[in-house]
Nucleic acid binder design. Structure first.
Lengths: 202, 202
DNA sequence: CAGGATACTAAATGCCCGTTCAGTCTTCTG
DNA sequence: CAGAAGACTGAACGGGCATTTAGTATCCTG
């Protein structure tokens, strides 16, 4: 691996973990085994590096989305709804900094974050619309509203993973969590969770 | 309002908007109409100020949760599920920095963020369990899994509000968004969204 | 009203950190 | 193999920022 790539990767991990503001060029350089000025030499400035990392992470998702567009069966897996979060977790090594970086990207207001979210949305919407046209959805379902609903749930699992793990004792993206979660989610997708109080009166 | 409180409020707004790392004491002081050293005089250090703001925002939520615990009917509103996000939005002035601050609190890994999440979870779980015991939930529903499901959706609406607004053109926490959203959500709570393919075979 | 505490400020301090400089080493290219 | 271009480093620089200092005004309290 080229030194340039080593710097980029070290920065990705450190940015994801502590946020770019808290990370110094020296820390990045040390983690990559180089000197601080070399970082500037390769990326122009700290800001330049940040942008390169943003783009790079964006590209990881592009690849994931592209792969999924070509092989939608990857997803049709356990749960009824489209869980890109699950797919992402399976796709990346367990210690990947990408999920944590995604958090920052979505919540920092960075342009790459908005681009990424939009692509995610369009992919999800396409999937929902396809289900709609295939007649798998209950009549009267609004595909846009449903997409928002499903995406919110999906992304929250990534964004709040640590909190859910802390509170329930189960990492929602571990095998155990996915099982327990997926079963319930599928049931909700099919029937909802409320007793249908109109059944008796109709 | 005491100057101390003015500083605290200015800091809350600026921290929420740009993140504590990007905000200087001078900016806070200017926004509050005081000098920078006065901030140190009242809060010891920038870090001290950050902690006070964390606690203060935490207390806002404590109050909200307490009020809700005493008057659960506040919530039983439109949607079937418990939308604390909606309640929060109604409760705060439209330009309140609290929702944006909540984002940072939950995603920065700050201890106050974990405390806050836990209280939110316990409140939600209590509500779900109550529904369970009242027999409103479909048999076989796991209250914990359901709580996780509902909270994820609820919190994502706050955390990703800007992104959803950007992509759909509708702020999900505006009156229009809540209407469109709530209707769909209620339907999902009742029946799910998938055509029940077991109906025909059973 | 004395005088101590507290609120407050302008100016000074010192550190951290991104960046630049000057120079060496390595690697291509003709 | 010459010699130019790029990779790379240690040392210096300079700006920004939190914090300290020293001193003034304001407010309590007896």
């Amino acid at each position: 691996m080229t030194r340039r790539a080593a710097i980029r990767d070290a920065a990705t991990r450190l940015f994801a973990e502590h946020g770019p503001e808290r990370v110094t060029l020296k820390q990045i350089a040390d983690a990559a085994g180089v000197s601080a000025p070399l970082v500037v030499h390769h990326f122009g400035s700290k800001d330049g590096l940040k942008q390169v990392v943003d783009d790079h992470v964006g590209r990881v998702f592009d690849d994931l989305f592209a792969e999924f567009s070509e092989h939608p069966e990857l997803l049709a897996a356990p749960a009824g709804g489209a869980s890109l979060a699950e797919l992402l977790t399976r796709h990346l090594p367990p210690d990947s900094p990408v999920p944590a970086y995604l958090r920052r990207l979505l919540l920092s207001g960075a342009p790459e974050g908005y681009r990424l979210f939009r692509r995610w949305y369009e992919l999800s919407l396409g999937f929902t619309v396809a289900m709609h046209e295939a007649g798998v959805l209950r009549p009267g379902t609004d595909p846009v509203a449903l997409t928002v609903f499903l995406m919110a749930d999906d992304l929250a699992t990534i964004l709040l993973r640590d909190h859910f793990a802390d509170v329930t004792g189960v990492d929602p993206l571990s095998a155990e969590g996915l099982a327990r979660w997926g079963e319930q989610a599928l049931s909700i997708c099919r029937h909802g969770f409320l007793v249908d109080n109109e059944e008796g009166t109709e």
